[in-house]
Amino acid sequence: MPERVRGQRLRVGIDGLTASGKTSFGHELAEQVSRAGRPVLRASSDDFKRPWRDRHRYDRESGAGYYRNAFDYAAIRSLLLEPGGPSGSGECALCFIDPLTQTDHSSESTEAPEDAVLIVDGVFAFRPEINEYWDFRIWLEVSPEVSLCRGAARDNDESTHRDRYLPAEKIYLAEVDPLPSVDMVIDNSDFDRPRLL
């Protein structure tokens, strides 16, 4: 762990293509960090999407629309990443809008101790809107073919992954090119044998 963040709050971002294993990896990392003696908070950017009641205001169905409009980056910054940082208040909302029930949880906060590690998984995590807030960045590498296969099997819906999620990822990779900014790349093509690249 870098000396500059030892004893301070640390924000870890986990990114990768859809179905690359970000959430499971985040849970496993949180368990290991907790065993090492640091308090851990877990969050996912999926819980910071714009509410469906506002979907008539913008395109969220196409690949480009999903990439540009699905997530509320102002909420991620103000509710989670800013308070979860070394100089933040420590009062973090780990969920903005529940993606299943659409319940607003933005007023519910969790206290992040001064040495807490906040682990957040999600697609597009290293976009310019929030990239500066991470203290450590992890990219889970899988091919687009693996992403599509896993996502279709998980959600029983190949068309959404093929026509919306993968095109959105292509825009992200082309516009942002996040890999040069990451601290660690892990080949997660085989869940049972992740490999540090």
Score class of each variant (00 low, 15 high):
residue 100 L to P: 02
residue 157 D to E: 10
residue 60 R to W: 00
residue 125 A to N: 09
residue 4 R to M: 09
residue 192 D to L: 13
residue 58 Y to E: 15
residue 100 L to W: 08
residue 173 L to R: 14
residue 141 E to D: 14
residue 126 F to E: 10
residue 144 P to I: 05
residue 160 T to R: 09
residue 120 V to D: 09
residue 85 G to R: 00
residue 55 R to D: 14
residue 104 D to Q: 11
residue 101 T to E: 14
residue 193 R to V: 09
residue 11 R to N: 02
residue 145 E to K: 10
residue 164 R to E: 04
residue 192 D to I: 01
residue 144 P to R: 14
residue 115 D to E: 13
residue 115 D to S: 08
residue 62 S to V: 07
residue 93 A to E: 09
residue 142 V to Q: 02
residue 164 R to A: 12
residue 16 G to R: 03
residue 114 E to F: 07
residue 108 E to T: 13
residue 87 S to N: 13
residue 57 R to Q: 13
residue 93 A to G: 15
residue 22 K to L: 05
residue 59 D to L: 10
residue 153 A to D: 11
residue 168 A to R: 00
residue 160 T to Y: 07
residue 169 E to Y: 14
residue 167 P to S: 08
residue 82 E to S: 04
residue 73 Y to M: 14
residue 154 R to C: 00
residue 115 D to C: 06
residue 85 G to C: 09
residue 160 T to M: 09
residue 24 S to H: 10
residue 6 R to Y: 14
residue 141 E to V: 08
residue 182 V to Q: 02
residue 188 N to I: 00
residue 79 L to C: 06
residue 66 Y to I: 01
residue 62 S to Q: 00
residue 39 P to R: 09
residue 97 I to Q: 02
residue 149 C to D: 12
residue 65 G to A: 13
residue 161 H to A: 09
residue 107 S to K: 10
residue 132 E to W: 05
residue 152 A to P: 00
residue 40 V to P: 01
residue 100 L to K: 11
residue 91 E to G: 07
